[in-house]
Nucleic acid binder design. Structure first.
Lengths: 212, 212
DNA sequence: GTCTATAATTTGATAGAC
DNA sequence: GTCTATCAAATTATAGAC
């Protein structure tokens, strides 16, 4: 059965080649610049060959999206080691911003191109599956908020809503910066710190003061 | 000179017809659905005729963008009558969200389609001209923040940075909702209120408590 | 599995007649 | 000013040969 296995292997390899080529194109020229022809040229196959592995251009993009989100999750997870949930939220937000600044085209692909892409990772359907990267990322944030409430550090808001608000606010900062790069304002990190600091203070129960 | 005037009038009218048709198309099918041919069909002219009034499709879109931003400014300005700056910021944010929800395609056009569109209204170049709608909107917010700091209600942050952060946070909420409409979370108004409330608390000097 | 060839569209923009 | 005709290009996707 070695022959069948080799065929499997080759098929998987080609699939990976397609994705790698697509990734490179998206990273260099954005999602708009991604076409089946360009992928085919890059891997030196005919365009028709791609359709043996992916049903459509969109399906390729969705796969890249998923990968990119896993990468974002990786950035965020680096904050998981921080025991203090307060510091952890800070770190999550910072790593989120860092992902956006370091991998702008990945960020764009997930959140700023097609509605169906955001939906595929963060939509209602995805959030039902606990294994989906979107669910894991959101859950990570939600649990951190919950811990803060449990300890009386945050006032008793709905942790789900609070997590959503935090996510949205940081997303706003990142996406606005990506859309409008020559902003006359301070560097994004200073703004991100101000945003985090403000949100932390805003959610805090009032007993302890927010750290700078 | 009656003839020349009539010609002027007719020219202006046609220009307006083009924009109206384009507006309708964008509102119904988004910016992606906007093409010179569709505009031409709608006004019953040939595609070539459009180029007598606009240099390109992009120029038409930029004009629509400007209009849309003026409409957003109108929404925000309704909050201008509120004397108390604290309540005013709330009202600005709420009207901003309302604009996004009531005119999603306008919001998309300005902030979520082409980088050059955001740039044309909120980019560094636009922000140098005090008459630009983007400048006026941002200035309105900045001045309100400044008033709050002057009264000691907000802690002494950089008003420019604070205004930017507030804008970005609300933008994040709106844009995320537009990209991901079937969100399982509460209605956007509740989230917007939570966001505003949290930001207000976060910026407050700590003396007075935030209002619900 | 892979290719060649091509269908079927759509696009923005222009040349030149009237 | 306006139209017809068209260019030049790009796209996704498929049919059919090998």
């Amino acid at each position: 059965m070695g022959i069948a296995e080799r065929k499997e292997r080759q098929k998987a390899e080609l699939r990976e080649q397609i994705l790698t080529a697509a990734r490179t194109i998206v990273l260099e020229r954005g999602y708009r610049g991604l076409s089946m022809r360009k992928i085919a040229d890059a891997i030196e196959y005919s365009p028709a060959a791609l359709y043996l592995h992916f049903a459509s251009r969109e399906e390729i993009a969705l796969q890249l999206c998923r990968e990119a989100f896993l990468e974002l999750l990786g950035y965020m997870a680096s904050a998981g080691a921080i025991a203090d949930p307060y510091q952890r939220i800070f770190a999550i937000a910072r790593s989120y911003v860092r992902f956006g600044m370091e991998k702008p085209e990945s960020y764009r692909l997930i959140f700023m191109e097609e509605q169906s892409f955001v939906d595929s990772v963060m939509g209602p359907k995805a959030l039902e599956d606990p294994d989906e990267p979107g669910t894991r990322a959101f859950e990570f944030l939600r649990a951190t908020v919950e811990a803060l409430i449990a300890r009386g550090i945050f006032r008793p808001v709905d942790p789900e809503a609070a997590a959503h608000v935090i996510w949205a606010a940081v997303h706003g900062l990142v996406s606005l910066r990506l859309s409008c790069p020559g902003s006359p304002f301070e560097d994004i990190d200073a703004l991100a710190d101000l945003l985090c600091d403000t949100l932390m203070r805003g959610f805090s129960s009032g007993a302890g003061d927010a750290a700078g």
